[in-house]
Design a protein around this nucleic acid. Structure first.
Lengths: 343, 343
DNA sequence: TTGAAAGCGCTAACAG
DNA sequence: CTGTTAGCGCTTTCAA
């Protein structure tokens, strides 16, 4: 029942605890008799010894724990990202602590205290909104490295997708498929990801001298996509395509159209962003932009390790996925006929 | 930069470290001068002191960390379950360590070593298959409580859904809707969840003197649902309904039928189990059984805390959700016409 | 090439 | 009611 300690191993091997420690830490490069080392290893095996992490941490002042602070682990995008972080951490022998802030800035703030007490060595951070500077600063002062993922926050190194380029590609695709009257259902204005996607899209349209029919802000949830789509579709019967800030909202929009008796893509085209699993399950298959969530996680973790003082962000490429939800439009640019608008 | 310690707090407050410790641990019930306590609290605030967890752990031999060991965090069912565990742990001031065994018994086994070193106080465990007894026993010997969730494993307390009852309800629904020729696409035979669902279903059919047309085993993934469905649909043109062991497999089956040009629910009905988000996004809406993943997580964590020696399982109720994928069948019981079978 | 000794920061007897 | 003392299990000088 009592834990096996390094002293017992030392005793069994007939050496001192320091020697055992050296073996454990690979500090035996060249200058240790292979025979001694072998005896220690044998003792470790017979006693089934595992070092106590707490003691080691206390001594070294490094926990070997990386925190992943994300808004919602049950969102497949974030869980993929988390897996990416964990994969790289695992390779390096680091543990990961997943902290789910539940889309609440308050809970997120609580977590900063916990992470401080926990003594994590680094944090991969996907903020819910504007992070609590004071709390975060306390960690940074203690030398904890923090990398922001999938967002940008001033003063922090960040790893994100090329949202602007993705949106631009999407816009070009829609334009060349014949869509002109387009409404944009954006994510929260204060999140850089949402803002970038919106801006990339609007700028690309502008090049063709087109303005969106409407721009509404939601919160990246299925429900907000549904609600905004209903609003737009009833107020703007002429709209030809709905572009959402992420896939979840796009799927919500799809259902809204369905519930209003508007056929997709027959009467209105729909596009999303992210390319998360649920989008694959939906019919018509969604036109979207694939964001490498797993890669973002891996890259963020690498940045954490390399710790170059570069506060610049790293931007990963995205890929346009053309589905069935935005087919080429016929010459008709009149939108739905008023009679089909049963808002 | 250097960490603030309990001694510095003590010095500033003009007391001994033990007194500070007492304040920190609420060991001041009645017998401490309020004034002293106030001074300590003030010192803590001015110095912005946070106790070092590692030191505390080393002393108390309790880490305050609960591990959640699950097969796949990007599966919405498990991430919901994990959130349930984390919610209860958070209330009690415990941290949670999410470990993703990636559907691999081997990685799961590795994790037992890590958890041992980490010194977790308890584990909520969703096994991939048959767990490595030896590794798990090491933890248990050291007093680590382990609760199995969403499964049963001999000798462990468990929290699971009433899979048999759910399957029975589903069977009754299908029978009364007029389905007779039913194939069952089960999960892995060695997982109790899959076995219970299958058994509950078959037993309920038997009451009506009916046997399944076929029973095939998959592995709970979308892909296996797809593959098994193709097989069944081409070999058994007479089949009227496909019942899958979980929603992911059911969605796979849906796509398989679609790809084979078989209409759902026109020619064949489909049902699943779990009622996870993606199932909501699919059309036709899936008939399924809602399993309270979040509640299972919460309850498992509670069991961990209560630690009653009850090795009995707690079984949570489920609810039949009737969707559009299994409408009442007309009198025709002839199945699809051979010509529509384009396997 | 190895051992002895001194803590890391905290808590828990045991005194007073 | 509060202080003193002795470690928890490990790593790391410093000596040998």
């Amino acid at each position: 029942m009592g834990r096996v300690t390094i002293r017992e191993v030392a005793a069994l091997a007939g050496v001192s605890p320091s020697t055992v420690s050296r073996v454990l830490n690979g500090k035996d490069a060249g200058h240790m008799r292979p025979e001694t080392k072998e005896r220690v290893l044998a003792a470790i095996r017979t006693l089934d010894y595992t070092p106590a992490k707490a003691a080691r941490t206390l001594r070294k002042k490094k926990t070997g724990v990386i925190a992943i602070l994300i808004p919602d682990i049950s969102n497949p995008f974030f869980s993929l990202l988390a897996r990416g972080v964990a994969a790289v951490a695992f390779e390096r022998g680091l543990s990961t602590l997943i902290c789910d802030s539940d889309n609440s800035v308050e809970k997120e703030t609580q977590y900063w205290d916990i992470l401080l007490a926990e003594g994590v060595d680094g944090v991969v951070f996907v903020p819910v909104g504007r992070p609590n500077e004071a709390k975060v600063t306390r960690l940074r002062r203690r030398g904890v490295r923090i990398v922001v993922a999938d967002r940008r926050v001033d003063g922090y190194p960040a790893v994100e997708a090329d949202n602007q380029a993705g949106s631009a590609a999407l816009a070009v695709h829609l334009l060349s498929a014949g869509y002109r009257r387009i409404a944009y259902l954006a994510g929260p204005a204060e999140v850089s990801t949402a803002a970038d996607r919106l801006e990339g899209f609007v700028v690309a349209l502008r090049v063709a001298n087109i303005e969106p029919v409407a721009v509404l802000h939601g919160d990246f949830t299925y429900q907000s996509g549904y609600d905004l789509a209903r609003r737009v579709l009833s107020r703007h019967p002429e709209v030809e395509a709905l572009v959402a800030g992420n896939d979840l909202m796009a799927i919500g929009a799809l259902r809204a159209a369905e519930d209003m008796g508007i056929s997709v893509p027959g009467e209105v085209g729909i596009a999303g962003f992210d390319h998360v699993l649920p989008a694959d399950l939906v019919r018509p298959r969604l036109t979207t932009v694939a964001v490498p969530a797993y890669e973002i996680g891996k890259e963020a973790m690498r940045q954490l390790l390399e710790g170059g003082e570069a506060v610049e962000g790293r931007v990963l490429p995205v890929e346009l996925i053309v589905g069935e939800s935005t087919p080429r439009r016929g010459g008709d640019s009149s939108g739905r006929t008023p009679t089909s608008d049963k808002s």
